[in-house]
Each structure stands twice: as structure tokens, then as C-alpha cells.
Design a protein around this nucleic acid. Structure first.
Lengths: 265, 265
DNA sequence: GTCAAATATTGAACCTGATTCAAAAAATGC
DNA sequence: GCATTTTTTGAATCAGGTTCAATATTTGAC
């Protein structure tokens, strides 16, 4: 028995090593430039060994995405445990993602890439399942907050929708905004700056639309509204995300992005 | 002069031929399986000639995405010219995308893939620009509808936001929902079916939240709401999109998807 | 401790398919 | 008709993902 266990543990450790190396590579050179052979060499293993863990490059990407879900989960956990009205917590979930996206831009880039049919389908089914499961806790936090809101009477639910059916609008809006942000040049083209600020604003509206109490009132016809939202956001940041609100770099990005190989140059 | 012009025209025609072939390939075999050489051969040209038009495979994808924007634009145009309250038109824009996504699933798949940093950055800058410009008309329709709503007093704008700043929530929600839909297994995992129905529902809420008149009232606590929305949607479909509401296949998809090469089998 | 069997690792060879570019062909214009 | 320019060709190159026969290590019995 013990031998089996040790082997499994070592195998898992090595996998982690590979994942760390891959993450490092991505932050260093960008997803485009990741090479299987290099990741293996970086860990002092041969290519073949790497393939013992991951069925393909895409498989590795999906695995990495799964692994990174844990970090997001940690933020969501804070929100879950936060003693605040349900509405604030629901909002804080999007805020968490926003901060995370700015701190670790590579994460959402990868996430977006992986969610692409092309990549997703190229990963092994087991890996896809694993990835889904890794994300489950995120869904659970959302579900819990929504359910609590319904139970407490903060959130009317005349249509008896499932919690996630109520939340999917906000979810999609977040995903979509990340997508738009990562399409370099797109938002600038339409002169849309501060996309994440707009996202937060629209999420507030969206929660209002759901009639989620207490409403965030915006009917004073001044430009103070933006101020007020900023202030509100800052408040949450100070309470829950103190550690995330300073600089905005990829955590293990020891060099600047400038180092990346640019295609077409 | 005339020679120059003829050459340019022929060049453009050939490019179109390549694009059509590429589109056909994508619908037939999926994005993953597209091969440059095959596209060239299909048009009775050599690989080299294909590369005279597109700097790389990614470049071709982005070009194709640009080209397909024209089709979406056509739908948006109908909405623009529709003589109906601004709110209905705004809603109809998302509906148009929804129908389009169901009719030509490959389009949004490609769109999503192309918007990925990995692909986007691998295309030539000129191509990216071209793609952005191809999408401009879409933005313009949106902008026009929003502006008209503000002018008519249908849509209050206390913060003096730009039209697209007001619309970006709805836009992001649509983009995000397509993304979620295309991540096979994801929504099922959370037991979310009928995602596009939910999208439309949430868009209505979102418009309500913007206080866009006339509000779509949903405060009767019955399950009739879904009915009512369906009915409303059907009405728009019959008026504007009669041609799109029957079967849901990729337009030039002569064979079923079953033909596609499946990785991992 | 030794050895055969079972397991794990290696990395060079293989393979696919994108991209290039020297040679061949076609078009131009004198 | 011919020299020059432009275009097309497709075999050769190249990159990098993936495989697998050979090699090394570990195991467990004796």
C-alpha cells in the first residue's frame, strides 16, 4: 500500500511541478509560445514524461485552467464568509473577478482560450471533467448567496428560477467583458475606456433590475454616481481585498511583457 | 490604369474564393481541422498563392471573421430600419445575434476563437484593423438606437454616458453567453438549459434597469412571464426575422457535424 | 545481496502541417 | 518577338507536438 501511495504522491508532485513551469512559461512568454519540450526540460524531465501527465498541449492548458480556479475560489470564499447583506456579496463576486483579472491577466486570457471550442475539444474528456469540477466551488458560492438572498427576502423570485438562472446574467456579463477587454484594440476603437468600471456599474444596474434589495439608487441626476460607486467599491476592497488593490501584475511575472516574442516583427 | 484595376479586381475575387472555401471547410470539418494547403487546392491554386493573401492561418481566420461580420450587419440593418420603439429595437439586436448564433454556430465559435489573444495577436496588424472596421457598422447601429432613445426621452442618461457605455453591458452579456454556450458541458454541468432564453430574459431586465421605456413589466407573480416573453420574441421574429426562425443549421453545412474528425478517439 | 519481472523514463525519430522561396510561367509593354 | 517584370508554383524547409523502442530504475522474491 505504502509504495502505491508514495508513487501517487510523487506523481502528483511532479504534475504540480509541470503546472508551475507551464504557468511560469505563460507569464513569461505568452500562451502562444509555450512549448511542451521546454516545459519538460525546465523541470529536468524528458518530453515523454510530460506526456505521461497530459495527453496533449491543450490538455495541459485545461489542467492549468483547473488549477488556477483554486485561486479564484479563494477570493470567492472570502466573499462567502463576509458578513454583509447578500446584495453586497453578490456584487463583491464580480468585483473579485475584476481584481483577479487585473492582477493576473494571464489567467483570464488562458481561461478564455481554453473555453474556446477548439481547445476545449482537444483536451481529454477526463481533463474537461476535472476542470468543470475545479470550478464547481465557484458556482456553489454563487448559488449559496443567491439562495440566501431569496430566503431572506432580499431577492424576489416570482418565476421560481433556479439560483444560477438568476445569476447567469451577471456571470455572462463578466465573462463577456473579460473577452472584450482582451481583444486588444477593440474597446479603444469604440472609445470605451475603464471597461471594468463600466462592468461594475452595469452589474449594479443588473442587480437593481432583479429588484435585489437594498437597491443601489442612482436617480440623482448628477455625475456623483460614479463617485459613489467608486467609493462603495473602495470600501469593499478595503474590507475584503486589501491585498489585491495595489499593483496589477501577473504574480510570477519576473520580467515585463516586453520580453515576449512578437509575431510579425 | 485599367490593367491595374482589373488585376485588383481579380485579386479581390480570388480572395473571396479563398474565404468561401475556408468557410466551407470550417463548417464541414471544424476550425481545428482547417488546413491551408487544402484550402488552396480546393480553389485550384497553390499554397504559395494563398499566402499572397493571408500572412498566416490566423490571419485568414481573422479575415474570415471580418467577412462574416457583414452578415450580422445585415440583420442589424433590419433592426435599424424597423419602425418600432427604441426599446424593442435594442432588444431585437440581441435577439438577432441569438438567432444568428443558432443558425450559424460556426460563426460565433470562430468569432470567439479569433478574439482570443493568442489568435488575435498572431494575425497581421492590418488584418486586425480591417476586422475592427468590418465590425464598425454593428457598433454604429447600436449607437444610433441608443442615441435615439436618449433623444426621444425613452432612456434617461443622468450620468451623461456615451451611447456605447450604456450599451456595453448588454453587449458583454451577449458575448459572455455565447462563450458559455460554446464551452461544451459547462452549462449542463450547472443544469442550465435554454441559455439563450435566459439571455433574452436578462437583457429585458437589464433594459428595465436602465429605465428604458416602456418597461417590460414582470411583477405578476406567475410563471406566465416566460410565456409572455416568448410571445414577445415570437412577435419580433415574425416581423423581422421570418427567414431565420425555422431550422438551425450552418448555412453551407451540407453534411452533419458527425463527419468531423474527433480528437481523442 | 542478487536477479528476473514489472514499471518508469528517455529522447531521438516520426509526423503533420504551416511557411518559404528558387525556379518556372505568364503578363506586360516596347 | 523579345527583354523585363510580375505572378504562380509546389517541393523543400522548418517547427514543434507526439510516439515508442531502447534504456534505466524499482520492486519483491529468494
Amino acid at each position: 500500500m505504502s509504495i502505491q501511495e508514495r508513487k501517487q504522491r510523487q506523481f502528483a508532485e511532479r504534475e504540480q511541478q509541470f503546472l508551475d513551469a507551464a504557468k511560469h512559461e505563460i507569464c513569461q512568454r505568452g500562451i502562444l509560445a509555450v512549448q511542451m519540450a521546454r516545459i519538460a526540460r525546465q523541470c529536468d524531465y524528458s518530453t515523454g514524461t510530460l506526456y505521461q501527465h497530459f495527453a496533449s498541449k491543450e490538455d495541459l492548458f485545461v489542467a492549468l485552467n483547473a488549477e488556477m480556479a483554486a485561486q479564484r475560489t479563494a477570493l470567492f470564499e472570502r466573499v462567502r464568509q463576509w458578513r454583509a447583506p447578500t446584495r453586497d456579496r453578490m456584487f463583491a463576486l464580480t468585483l473579485a473577478d475584476t481584481l483577479f483579472a487585473q492582477r493576473q491577466p494571464e489567467h483570464f486570457r488562458l481561461s478564455q482560450y481554453v473555453t474556446t471550442e477548439v481547445i476545449w475539444q482537444a483536451a481529454s474528456p477526463e481533463r474537461r471533467q476535472q476542470c468543470l469540477e475545479a470550478h464547481r466551488p465557484l458556482g456553489e458560492v454563487v448559488e449559496q448567496v443567491v439562495r440566501e438572498a431569496i430566503d431572506k427576502g432580499d431577492l424576489p423570485n416570482p418565476q421560481q428560477l433556479a439560483p444560477l438562472e438568476l445569476a447567469i446574467g451577471q456571470w455572462a456579463m463578466g465573462v463577456g467583458m473579460h473577452t472584450l477587454v482582451h481583444a486588444e484594440g477593440l474597446l479603444q476603437y469604440y472609445d470605451l475606456n475603464q471597461p471594468y468600471e463600466l462592468l461594475l456599474q452595469h452589474v449594479q444596474r443588473h442587480l437593481n433590475a432583479l429588484n435585489w434589495q437594498p437597491l443601489f439608487d442612482e436617480n440623482k441626476n448628477t455625475t456623483q454616481n460614479a463617485e459613489r460607486l467608486n467609493h462603495y467599491v473602495a470600501g469593499i476592497c478595503n474590507t475584503l481585498f486589501t491585498d489585491l488593490c495595489s499593483n496589477h501584475q501577473c504574480r510570477d511575472n519576473d520580467a515585463s511583457n516586453a520580453k515576449r516574442k512578437k509575431p510579425h516583427e
